[in-house]
């Protein structure tokens, strides 16, 4: 096995996959949290809007969403702004994962004991303060494993960015395989590269979980 070509493209491709994952996940988490808050919030219009968003986005295959945003919306936007394919890809991933993450946050908030909100409000905390200091930290701790799963799923889904010409791991592998005809070798390397990203991610989430959960495990009164 000649490792030189791999040294050429693998580090760059790995970095692109990691970059796509981190930026998309950031968008997905922020937007997902906002949508999740809207879904459990007091404003009926926002509740409805968030529900519609989640249902619509979850009903569309991610592959189609990417094509739709890149080729569909891209053909309009491209008339006055030439955006990088990364913009289209991270938007598509972020918008899609926001819908799933919103559902996770919603379930996280709804699974909390009502007594927590009541105790916070009874002390004079505003709705917002109660959310920020009492509900969100507890919900976050509870949903961390689920968020970790989304992170891993998103990382693997970034392989779809190959359709918008980004030379991330999968796209680079495809290019080199068709050049070298060493299919088994190339895809073995690509698969190992994905594992090299997913395993530390999973491990990191577990560590964080353990750190947040050790002493403050919810009691059953």
């Amino acid at each position: 096995m000649d490792i030189h070509p791999y040294l050429e493209f693998v580090p760059r491709a790995l970095a692109r996959t990691a970059f796509l994952t981190v930026t998309s996940l950031a968008i997905g988490l922020v937007l997902g949290l906002l949508l999740g808050l809207a879904r459990v919030g007091p404003v009926k219009f926002l509740r409805r809007a968030a529900t519609v968003y989640v249902e619509v986005v979850r009903g569309i295959p991610l592959f189609v969403l990417i094509l739709y945003i890149y080729y569909g919306l891209g053909s309009f936007i491209g008339q006055f702004w030439v955006a990088s394919p990364y913009i289209y890809a991270t938007s598509a991933f972020g918008l899609c994962y926001a819908a799933y993450i919103a559902e996770i946050f919603r379930a996280g908030f709804q699974s909390l004991d009502r007594g927590q909100t009541e105790a916070a409000r009874a002390l004079g905390l505003s709705r917002r303060q109660a959310m920020r200091h009492v509900l969100l930290p507890q919900a976050f701790r509870n949903i961390l494993p689920a968020l970790g799963n989304e992170g891993v799923a998103l990382l693997k889904d970034t392989s779809l960015a190959s359709v918008v010409t980004i030379a991330e791991l999968t796209q680079s592998g495809k290019a080199y395989a068709s050049l070298s005809y060493r299919f088994f070798e190339v895809w073995t390397v690509v698969a190992l590269c994905y594992l090299a990203l997913t395993i530390p991610l999973t491990w990191g989430v577990r560590k964080l979980e353990a750190r947040l959960g050790v002493r403050s495990a919810p009691h059953t009164a």
């Binding site: 004991d113 007594g115 927590q116 009541e118 105790a119 916070a120 409000r121 009874a122 002390l123 004079g124 905390l125 505003s126 200091h133 009492v134 930290p137 507890q138 701790r141 947040l212 403050s216 495990a217 919810p218 009691h219 009164a221």
Partner: peptide, 28 residues
């Protein structure tokens, strides 16, 4: 919120904040 701040309440099931230490429960 102002009204509630001057009325203390204690619940049957305690409802302490499980993610906060005892001190943080009292200072929040």
């Amino acid at each position: 919120d102002q009204h509630r701040a001057r009325v203390g309440m204690v619940f049957q099931r305690f409802n302490l904040f499980p993610h906060l230490s005892v001190l943080d429960n009292l200072t929040l």
